[in-house]
Amino acid sequence: MITITDFQKVGVGLTGFGLFFVIFGILLYFDSVLLAFGNVLFLTGLAFIIGLKRTAHFFFQKHKLRGSTFFLGGVGLVLLRWPIIGMAVESYGFMLLFRSFFPVVFQYLGSFVNIPFLSKVS
């Protein structure tokens, strides 16, 4: 069984609140304060979950520098109160950073088709 430290529990909470504030900021017509707060909470939560060293290693790998530049540049634009452009740049950077995870996620979601109740619904 995997043990979860108290820092990781706090990190999951911070990341969850960060995602909530980002979604809420988008729903409120790109409110820059909510988006900025959500971005800061998300990045802080990520650092709490996997550690500061691993977070820095993830963002600053040589093959992920372009994605990291766009993602962190988008966060910077949101912090400078350019929310629409910042979120567009940040989304592009997110796609570049996490493109290797998308096939795994889609394969995992595709496995739900084999569940009897869900296969009848869809």
Rank of each mutant, 00 (worst) to 15 (best):
S91N: 08
F24D: 03
V113A: 12
F98K: 07
V121M: 15
V113N: 11
N114E: 14
D31Y: 02
G16M: 08
Y29A: 07
T3L: 15
L41C: 02
V121E: 14
F17P: 00
I23E: 04
L27C: 11
F42T: 01
Y92H: 09
V104C: 13
L72C: 09
Y29I: 07
I50P: 03
I23P: 05
G25Y: 00
L27G: 10
S32Y: 04
G16H: 09
L19D: 01
T3I: 15
F48E: 00
Y29H: 06
L28Y: 08
S100L: 10
F71P: 01
P83E: 06
G74C: 08
L43N: 02
E90K: 12
L109K: 12
L19Q: 00
G45L: 00
G16W: 07
R99H: 14
G18I: 00
I26V: 08
Y29D: 08
F112C: 05
L65H: 10
E90I: 05
T55Y: 07
Q8Y: 13
T55N: 08
L97Q: 05
L34H: 02
F70Q: 05
F60L: 11
S111I: 10
R54Q: 15
S68R: 04
L109N: 12
G67I: 09
T44Y: 03
M1C: 15
G110F: 09
G51P: 09
G73F: 09
Y29M: 07
A36H: 02
T15C: 08
S32I: 02
F59G: 02
I49K: 01
H63F: 14
T15N: 07
I4Q: 12
T69N: 13
V78T: 05
Q61Y: 06
L46H: 02
